[in-house]
C-alpha cells in the first residue's frame, strides 16, 4: 500500500485522540485517547520504517539509514506507554478512592 494511506490513517487516529483529550471530561477516556495518539504514532513510525527500508534498497535515493530504527523506537514507545499506563491508572484509582469520581473538573477545584 502507498505510504500516504498509512499517514492518513495515523493522522486521523492521532486527531481523534487529540480531539478526545480536548473535549472529554472523563479521566479514563482522556487517557484512552492519549493512548490512541501514541498508537497512531506507532503506526506511523512503522510505516515510515517500511518506507525507508524500501528507499534504502533503492540506491538512487541515497538515504542514510535502513529504516530499522523506526521499529526500535516503537518498542520504546510501547515500554514508555506501559509505564505511563501503570502510573496513570494508579493516579486515577487514587483519585477515585478519594473523590468517587473520575471527572476532570479540576479547574474549579484546584484554583482555591
Amino acid at each position: 500500500m502507498p505510504i500516504n494511506s498509512y499517514i492518513f490513517v495515523a493522522i486521523a487516529l492521532f486527531s481523534i485522540g487529540v480531539i478526545g483529550v480536548l473535549t472529554r471530561r472523563n479521566a479514563i477516556i482522556i487517557f484512552m485517547c492519549i493512548e490512541l495518539m501514541l498508537n497512531a504514532v506507532n503506526l506511523l513510525l512503522v510505516a515510515f520504517s517500511k518506507m525507508h527500508l524500501a528507499d534504502a534498497a533503492n540506491p538512487a535515493l541515497k538515504v542514510a539509514t535502513n529504516g530499522a530504527d523506526g521499529q526500535l523506537f516503537v518498542f520504546f514507545i510501547m515500554v514508555v506507554a506501559a509505564a505511563e499506563v501503570t502510573v496513570g491508572l494508579a493516579i486515577i484509582v487514587m483519585m477515585y478512592r478519594n473523590t468517587h469520581s473520575v471527572d476532570v473538573n479540576f479547574l474549579n477545584r484546584l484554583k482555591n
Binding site: F75, A82, A83, V85, T86, R97
Partner: peptide, 26 residues
C-alpha cells in the same frame, strides 16, 4: 463498587512485565 486493590495491582504488574517480555521476543 470499588473492589480490592489487589486486582488492580495484578493488572498493572501485568502491563509492566508483559512489556518487558516483549523485549525478549526479538
Amino acid at each position: 463498587q470499588p473492589v480490592a486493590i489487589k486486582y488492580f495491582l495484578v493488572a498493572v504488574l501485568f502491563v509492566l512485565f508483559d512489556v518487558e517480555v516483549i523485549f525478549f521476543y526479538p
